[in-house]
């Protein structure tokens, strides 16, 4: 970590690292955008993951009908396809989160510059 300069004694708290400053306004913006991204992906992840036991309980065609040798759809998904789902989700999320970090970083710098001009 760098050596941050904190300014919490005024109404608008801020943390400065070198030329870069976080204000509560810029951080709230970052937080909201990241929350949207994380919880959207999280909803898809839990929906798919919990759909598997749900299907195991209520969908006979899913858990009892062989579709390839001894593989049922249930066995095939849990033993193989689920991993492709996880890899796709993690790759896509990481890329989007990186892009979001960059975009929000630029916006945070703009907010800081604007506030600096206004002060």
């Amino acid at each position: 970590m760098g050596d941050p300069t904190m300014n919490t004694g005024v109404a608008n708290a801020s943390i400065q690292h070198g030329d870069h400053t976080d204000t509560i306004e810029s951080v709230d913006m970052v937080f909201r955008a990241q929350r949207k991204l994380s919880f959207t992906y999280g909803a898809v992840f839990f929906a798919v993951t919990l759909a598997i036991p749900a299907s195991s309980v209520w969908w006979e065609g899913w858990y009892s009908v062989p579709i390839w040798g001894g593989f049922t759809a249930n066995y095939l998904f849990v033993s193989l396809l689920y991993y492709f789902f996880l890899w796709g989700m993690a790759w896509s999320y990481s890329k989007q989160a990186d892009k979001l970090d960059m975009r929000l970083g630029d916006m945070a710098d703009e907010i800081t510059a604007r506030d600096g001009e206004g002060a």
Binding site: G2, I15, H17, D22, F31, D101, D109
Partner: peptide, 13 residues
């Protein structure tokens, strides 16, 4: 909140 979600340090680094 700024320590958890802030990015100034990472931009600086």
């Amino acid at each position: 909140w700024m320590r958890i979600h802030g990015t100034a340090n990472e931009r600086h680094e």
